[in-house]
Amino acid sequence: MKRLSFWRAALGAYINEVKGHPFEWGVFDCALFAAGAVTAMTGVDFATDYRGSYSTLKGGLRLLKARGFETHADLAAAHLTEIHPSHAQVGDIAAVSVDDAGLFALGVVQGARVIFLKPEGGLGTMDLLGAERAFRV
């Protein structure tokens, strides 16, 4: 996947645009937030078939499993090159474990921090060193 020549401006505009959007499964959750960032930077939306197709975490995971993916991080890995988190750069996607069941939150790398969509809405950041997986955009 190749970034557009104006990817930095497009990513900044995307993050500004969505920072006030409420969290909603299947409409605007952490995976769709990260996929939207990839779309802003590349023009390619690998989550098109998932948007609006589920309304709960269980429903989203069931849809992923039906398509051969264990988690949304595995979906990202199918479309982006997986890299060690220490090699992630601005605009790459990072996955941070959110529980002991192997679920991940996806976010967008911004230097030493990763921007994530918070379940209560709005954006937050986490340290990139806490990421377990990362994907080159």
Rank of each mutant, 00 (worst) to 15 (best):
F69T: 01
T39C: 13
A77E: 14
F69W: 05
L80Q: 02
T48P: 08
F69R: 03
H79Q: 10
V38C: 01
L61Q: 01
T71S: 13
E70P: 08
L64P: 00
A34K: 06
S55Q: 08
F46Q: 03
P85N: 05
H79T: 00
L57G: 14
H84Q: 10
L61K: 05
L80H: 04
A66P: 02
D45E: 13
L80A: 00
K65L: 03
A77F: 07
I83R: 00
R51I: 15
H84N: 08
S55Y: 08
R67S: 05
Y50E: 05
T56E: 08
L61T: 04
A77V: 07
H87A: 13
G52T: 11
P85G: 06
L32M: 09
K58M: 07
L64E: 01
A73C: 04
G59A: 09
S53R: 12
T48W: 08
H79L: 00
A78P: 11
E70Q: 13
D74A: 10
R51A: 15
K58L: 15
A78L: 03
L61D: 01
T56L: 05
Y54N: 03
A76I: 13
K58N: 14
F33E: 10
A47P: 13
L63A: 14
A37N: 07
M41P: 04
L57H: 13
K65E: 09
L64G: 00
F69P: 05
T42P: 09
V44N: 09
V38E: 00
Y50V: 00
G36V: 11
P85S: 02
Y54G: 04
Y50T: 01
R67F: 02
L61S: 00
G43D: 13
T56M: 03
I83F: 07
T48I: 14
K65D: 06
S86V: 13
I83L: 05
I83C: 05
V38M: 03
L32R: 04
H84V: 08
K65W: 02
S55E: 10
A66D: 11
A47Q: 11
L80I: 01
S53V: 09
V38Q: 02
H87I: 01
G36W: 10
M41E: 06
T48M: 13
L61V: 08
A35H: 07
A37E: 03
L64V: 03
L32V: 09
E70I: 12
L75K: 07
T48Q: 15
L64N: 00
L57W: 14
A88M: 02
A76N: 08
A66Q: 07
